[in-house]
Write a protein that binds this DNA or RNA. Structure first.
Lengths: 111, 111
DNA sequence: TCGAGCAACATAGTTAACCTAGTTGGCATG
DNA sequence: CATGCCAACTAGGTTAACTATGTTGCTCGA
């Protein structure tokens, strides 16, 4: 499930879950699959899944409740001090830059 | 160095470093101590230090450069744009991400 | 029937080890 | 002297194992 694009696995999983939340495939209040289940569906280790969930948790998209599960935040997102969103955008930009550079060098090698 | 306050160690360390940055004790452009040094000064494991740095990294306060070090971001965290601008930026990023992902998978298929 | 206890499962935090990869500085060889 | 190689140090990613703690449901005994 996790492709070898140079993007770390825990970010790929975080991206995928974030997309599912944004698209409503995971609705507010819904629980995410358990870390064990996520690990098997993404064919990743537990550690990577926990890192991915940690990313979403730090973004405020998701709230973990010990013993119960991890739930999609009820109230939209726009609450956070905005520095979180900003940081997310900056992180995404850096990632896109890196990936684009990789693609460009791959293309250059083929000439 | 890390107290037993119920607050996780990696957050305590992140808090401390964040304070040092805010107070200027760690000026923009300055390198943080290496993870190994941080681990010994805080008397914590490498893993915890890496988590702490990861927190600051995701906040955009700090930029890690592989092989060199982790540096305090030069331009302070800029003032947050309006939510409209934010939404526009996020939409653009999503679009770019999708297009780049398509290019990457196309390249991957050709191998 | 009630409930105490237990087993199973959940998130969360910590540690240690291993690997990749980029940077730097010094040393030896040509 | 200049080049190239190598060792040491850096961040970053992954894995596995362990602990702590909270939740839930079932079973067994009083």
């Amino acid at each position: 499930m996790v492709k070898n694009t140079g993007r770390p696995g825990y970010l790929q999983i975080a991206d995928d879950l974030r997309d599912q939340i944004r698209r409503g495939s995971l609705a507010p209040g819904d629980p995410l699959p358990s870390t064990a289940r996520l690990a098997s569906t993404y064919d990743a280790s537990l550690s990577v899944v926990k890192l991915a969930v940690g990313v979403l948790r730090s973004e405020g998209l998701v709230i973990g409740q010990q013993g119960k599960g991890v739930f999609v935040r009820e109230d939209g997102v726009p609450a956070p001090p905005s520095s979180g969103e900003l940081a997310q955008i900056q992180a995404t930009l850096r990632d896109l830059s890196e990936r684009l550079a990789r693609v460009e060098s791959t293309l250059a090698d083929r000439e």
